[in-house]
Design a protein around this nucleic acid. Sequence first.
DNA 1: AATCCGGGGCA
DNA 2: TGCCCAGGATT
Length: 362
Amino acid sequence: MKNDQIKDRSMLNEIVQPLTDWYRQNKRILPWRDQNNAYYTWVSEIMLQQTRVEAVKPYFQRFIGELPDVQALAECPEEKLMKLWEGLGYYNRVRNMQTAARTVVCEYEGVLPASYEELLSLKGIGNYTAGAIASIAYQIPVPAVDGNVLRVISRITEDRQDIMKQSVHRQIEENLLGIMPKETPGDFNQALMELGAVVCVPNGSARCEACPVSEYCLAYRHGTVEELPVKAPKKERILQNRTVLVIQDGEKTAIQKRPEKGLLAGLYELPNLLGHLTREEVLDKVKNMQLEPLYIEKLPDAKHIFSHIEWRMTGYLIRVAALDTDGGLPFIFAEKKQSEKQYAIPSAFRAYVKYMKEESGK
DNA sequence: AATCCGGGGCA
DNA sequence: TGCCCAGGATT
């Protein structure tokens, strides 16, 4: 073991008890902390990936209400599952979780395995989540290193290495593994995360005066808290122009299923095309779809920002002649209310979904 | 090791 | 606007 690694470990060893004590006094009341249930821990940890606590709360309650155990999750129809996740983002999280749930039903009799390695082998459960479930639900002394923990540890040890690097992440995991308390690993892991979420926060607002371990923190001692953690600059977002079509046939509006892979995989959307199209180009496209346009109206522009792409959208409202029922079109024609109930449409389309036709006579 | 995958809240 | 969030899979 390297010299500074030994130093880091002995320093981190000092914080275990005071931090755990602090957590027990100050932890937030959260729905998934009500009872010790490995399934609840699992669902909450998956939802909390790259997602704030406040955003997760209502989704968690609804999810476990509809799908109270692993069995129910394993058997849930795809569309219902996506509706339960609609708006949370990173939709593969829930698909992977269902795949894992089926594995758990088949191979573990519906009970999440109480071992770090077996948890890690499940779809959608990586280093962090395996550590979180193992330590919180089963009191197994393994670390759970998320963005909070990386920030907290880099400050306490005043580590100026790039925390985005795998090597740094691995080193922090090893150091924490060496100091995990055998009795209460779950509380200690949650204490690190809670500290990062509530006290040792990013972007120039760390509340060091409220920190239970500031006396052990090198960055605090040296006044370098706001310089840490060090992160590599991120890539620029790609801009994409799109034209969104609100195609109405009497009472109904066309929606379609997105491809099973890639961005917003398998969700539903309003028909849309790459580029900003003119009225004439849109009419051409609509005719090519075997539809007969009767009326067209320009809709306002809108923008949606994903983590790596930015859509700059323009839109058209188009009324078309009633169709023969079969036709072989790629579209589903749905009323707004029905589509909202049945189909998961990502919020990227929010600005145009509101032009879908409401049910008549109301 | 780098890239993809959402959406929202906040300064 | 940019940053960050209880990350993981894929290439």
